[in-house]
Design a protein around this nucleic acid. Structure first.
Lengths: 208, 208
DNA sequence: TTGCCAACCGGAACCAGTTCCGCTTAGACT
DNA sequence: AGTCTAAGCGGAACTGGTTCCGGTTGGCAA
């Protein structure tokens, strides 16, 4: 459980390429492996865009011209494949946080970002489930988690600077709660309830 | 995939016992069907208690001495089977709401109930996923949903009577949010974050 | 250039949940 | 008791994710 959220020493440097040798130094990915990874990501992006997260991994592998085994070597689960596919977009979301914090009142910035977050997760249907992995798996892919937590942290800090954050509120819990909202909102079709839930969370974060 | 498909005019037969004839009157379940339902529920309870929600439906069917087809006639998805299996316990949870509201200060009653709810959902691992169905499917099984929403409503009403509920807060959204917390807390092992999320929600509900 | 082997490849096999459909039977009606 | 049929039955078959493993190969060392 220990793993520290934000600060954490964390490993996982750059990632797209390779293992380490005995000394822990990185070895570049083999050329064919790299090629296949690219193809897989392209095929996955196309398939998810076309059919949503329901697209089957077998189809994706076939479309990429590789076997499922190859797909699974690089992406040990479908959720991780989804996550990797959308990583760029998630990154954009994270990058938007500081900007928002700089251009809007803190509480408004928080609401805007939360709304975008949930909208993104529920739009890329299945991304919400992938998020579960992100929030769950301590060993892999914690980069995304850290980025997201960092984004939330920024927004909270901005609000805290004005004294409008309830003491004891920490980014990881807020992020998880957002994840929960996304998961459950994604399986339902009621935008009004989704907005209400965000509202609930926001008021839980802010000081009366 | 599946769930989206059956949106249409479809099924939604009667409920615990039998269909209806042309006039809409109920017809009792056939004796063998009733017997099998009992066996299935017993087998499911045993299996879930023994192995958690991971227990396979095929095993349950075998243990009950019926084919999977039979199981699926009565419980159209595994989640619905889980829900049915735990219905009694959920009912107890619902029943506890008025008592809590009567014996504790409203905000404390709310926190207690929320905590119990999430604990139950995450303990009966997989129940949280079943909950998703409960919160999602409007055609079937809305009884459980209504009971839960009613329980939340009672607690909110008690708090509202003392003016401590933020205006605009409605039971269904609170219930869904609780569901979200349960789903995401269930896939993680961090009780501290779970408690924090409940806290967030609670403060979102209450007036400053 | 050649030899070597860790890394990589593909897809068959496996295990879930779910659907389909031909056969069986309870029980209402004669 | 006999007939008829809707309701029920079971399990083979299908789908989708994941694992396994024998064969292949990129790229480094000799």
């Amino acid at each position: 459980m220990a793993r520290d959220e934000l600060g954490g020493a964390g490993g996982a440097k750059g990632d797209a390429s390779g293992g380490k040798d005995a000394e822990g130094r990185r070895r570049p990915m083999r050329a064919d492996a790299q090629r296949n990874e690219d193809r897989l990501l392209r095929a996955a992006a196309a398939a998810f865009a076309r059919e949503g997260a329901g697209a089957s991994v077998k189809d994706i592998a076939r479309e990429a011209g590789v076997g499922v085994g190859t797909l699974y070597r690089r992406f040990p689960s479908k959720e991780l494949l989804i996550e990797a596919t959308y990583r760029n977009e998630v990154q954009l979301l994270c990058d938007a946080a500081p900007e928002l914090a700089g251009s809007q009142p803190p509480d408004q910035a928080l609401r805007t970002w939360m709304t975008r977050f949930v909208a993104f997760m529920t739009t890329k249907h299945g991304m919400a489930d992938a998020l579960r992995v992100v929030l769950t798996d301590d060993n892999e892919r914690l980069e995304t988690r850290r980025n997201l937590a960092e984004a939330v942290h920024r927004l909270l800090a901005a609000a805290a600077a004005e004294g409008t954050v309830r003491p004891g509120v920490e980014a990881p819990a807020v992020l998880m709660a957002l994840g929960g909202i996304s998961v459950i909102a994604g399986s339902e079709g009621r935008p009004d309830l989704t907005a209400q839930m965000i509202d609930l969370l926001l008021h839980g974060v802010l000081a009366g």
